[in-house]
Amino acid sequence: MNNIRKNRLKDQAFKIWGIFCTLLGLVLLAVFIGNILVDGIMRIDWEFVMNLPSRKPEKAGIYTALMGSIWVLLLTTIIALPVGIAAAIYLEEYSKKNKLATILEVNISNLAGVPSIIYGLLGLEVFVRIMEMGASVLAGSFTLALLILPIVIVSTREALKAVPKSIRDASFAMGASKWQTVYHQLLPASFGGILTGIILALSRAVGETAPLIVIGALAYVPFAPSSVMDEFSVLPIQIFNWITRPQHGFVENAAAAIIILLLITFVMNGIAVYFRNKWQKKFK
């Protein structure tokens, strides 16, 4: 009898501790966002979005950084998408499941855990210096593409794995080649999952700062990029730059820019969740 009571107490205790742990992160995030909103929400207007950088906080805007972020995001997508998906298709559907495949697999997972500043150094050496791209949008995009490649590969493989084996069997038995099976059956069936992974990877890329600082992205760029070889800044660098300024006006600007950056990532994650839910229904 006594034992049962004790067990129930333990059960209750753990439940309460669990609730506390679950809420901890959320509450902290809510407090942070609340703070930022109080600081920055009044600063956001159309002019703040469209203004070029300035030494006067009330005249400064995020236009160049925002455009830089959009340029980098688009180019990163164009570079990382075909490479990552092709690699995932090869690993999942073509390569034999032997020792070499296991080594490749483990190392790709390892790459996903390499600190982003290391990717920055790699980008600086390979793209900026050896390939002579300079501190351009292109060099930045290549660097971020490398950074998110492992995430794209891993999530694409997961999505392909989720397609039932019976679909592959059916397609092969109809006389389809591997590529026809991938193209006509597996990619359409795993599209939602692949898209989800890519959006999550990109929403990580849009918030990256360190690797872009290392390759030489600037805090102050007078104009938005107009070609892939132009120098650029991105939102997180702009935020970092404003926060280090002494004037109070810039703190407000930073808060406002943070709101916009968070908005972008939340929207991207929301789209990802939407596709994931829609896709999960398909096989159930």
């Binding site: 109809m174 006389g175 069936a189």
Partner: peptide, 27 residues
């Protein structure tokens, strides 16, 4: 691939493609 066009197969669990009826038969 040619061999399998000559030798068709039907499986234990019905496994239609997640596509339309027409697309399944025309695949």
């Amino acid at each position: 691939e040619l061999l399998r066009k000559q030798v068709g197969m039907v499986f234990q669990k019905p496994n239609p493609f997640p596509k339309s009826i027409f697309e399944n038969v025309a695949y």
